[in-house]
Design a protein around this nucleic acid. Structure first.
Lengths: 259, 259
DNA sequence: CAAATAGTGTCTTTTAGACATTATTAA
DNA sequence: TTAATAATGTCTAAAAGACACTATTTG
């Protein structure tokens, strides 16, 4: 595996040869941890902007592979389930007063011409994924020396149209939540009903009826009650549940309906 | 509006300058007419292959605009509702033994080098639409001197991965049928229950219960019964219905559920 | 009256949605 | 016993799904 720095150098120098011109991938990496939903952003010190982990697509790989490669380089995670949700092709989308040949040249260490293909109109293929905070080992890389999980309600000024991309990714995530099960990668193997309900509530940004919610998931067979209580303090102990992996997998393929 | 021939010439000559490299749009145009669902293909005489109406994307336009432009040039229709359904980015997807510099050179009228960007890995953005046969005025254009509506079950050998693209488009069309109303552009202003039911049955490739189907559409308010019979011969005359445009539009935006 | 096709209603089962009380634990 | 939080059940309304007979037209 080459480093992000090596890759960036290679890209700028001979991008037109090994990478697909005019196309990129943008990853929106959502992170869930203890009742909070955040998004992973990287700070580009040259541009003084926060941005999504993005990258170009090699001519020898498909878009999914490129998105996975970029995600792996930045987070160290190999197993992220990246979902392609939308493409962004507005002709003006890669114009930003802080994204200029001068700035990029400084960053690369040698002059970059304004006709460099990196300033061409670029179609971006948007991917999102959802993971557990604590699993992620942030690898900030060359462009950025800082990375941070940001609260969705409190984002900084972002590069290009990355704010729009995050908004659209969140819409897709929420929509998908109603049609596909979630939680396998986000919860411990054994979890309680309140834990999984709060996961849903956090992502959807709204409260759900605890009785109806439990009834839905158990009647679908996606979760199974264990004969075991979670040890806590100060109140009644909640039962532990686990996923029924077969039903869960089938629901991922065939879809479900949660209202 | 420039012709397809002029556009193609322009594309080959200076594509790298005005068009986005490594990206194209492929339109799957489904046509419905009297209980039949077909797809519109064009025959490329140079390549001796049938293909989808495809094109490149100008740097000054977005993907939707490019798809609409290509569709308009080939069909004369301005009002097609093109739906972006999937991208195709397999690195080997544009390799075809019948798509070579020699053949393309003949087609262009001057030599095309094998390093021409048109042979680069190309990501295709797939769009589909559904229209009425009889509304379409086929404009075969430069590459193709024949165009034809093909039965989905009986397609010829297709260019590149266009067969796969059609398969995926059909999947999306069918899935969408369960969540969005259809028929406004496909049926006459006044239509009968059997007509709209058969439209659904044709696209889905399966029979539906007539009573439950009628109940669903009327209870949603999408169609409204008129106090008028369709004049036919030899059997009981069916009532005419019309769409409730407000409800229909709202259902397009917010989605419905038809099982 | 026969052939063709359209129209229509009912019953059952499942699901959604609203809603409040009891149970358990630690301090 | 209090504070905190979890567990649980019932009723109603709506929707899905299965199913068969009657009505109208033409020849």
């Amino acid at each position: 595996m080459i480093s992000a720095k090596e890759e960036m150098f290679e890209l700028l120098a001979k991008g037109g040869k090994d990478y697909r011109a005019n196309v990129s991938v943008d990853n929106v990496i959502f992170g869930y941890h203890e009742k909070e939903l955040k998004v992973l952003l990287f700070h580009n010190i040259h541009l003084s902007l926060w941005m999504l982990p993005s990258g170009y697509i090699k001519k020898s790989e498909d878009a999914e592979t490129a998105a996975a490669r970029v995600a792996r380089q930045r987070t160290g995670l190999d197993s992220l389930f990246l979902q392609q949700f939308k493409i962004f092709s507005d002709p003006g989308r890669n114009v930003d007063p802080l994204f200029t040949p001068e700035i990029l040249g400084k960053l690369a260490g040698y002059p970059i011409d304004q006709n460099h293909w990196i300033f061409d109109a670029v179609i971006s293929i948007g991917f999102y994924t959802l993971t557990e905070f604590s699993k992620v080992n942030i690898n900030a890389g060359y462009f950025s020396e800082e990375a941070k999980w940001w609260d969705l309600a409190d984002l900084p000024r972002l590069f290009l149209d990355h704010q729009l991309i995050i908004n659209e990714a969140l819409k897709s995530l929420r929509l998908n939540l109603y049609h596909y099960p979630i939680g396998y990668e986000l919860l411990p193997e054994k979890f309680t009903l309140p834990e999984i309900r709060i996961l849903y509530e956090t992502i959807l940004g709204k409260q759900m009826d605890d009785r109806n919610f439990a009834r839905k998931l158990t009647s679908l067979g996606i979760i199974v009650k264990l004969d075991e209580l979670k040890q806590m303090h100060g109140h009644r102990l909640p039962y532990l549940y686990k996923f029924n992996k077969e039903v869960y997998q089938q629901a991922l393929t065939e879809g479900i309906f949660i209202s």
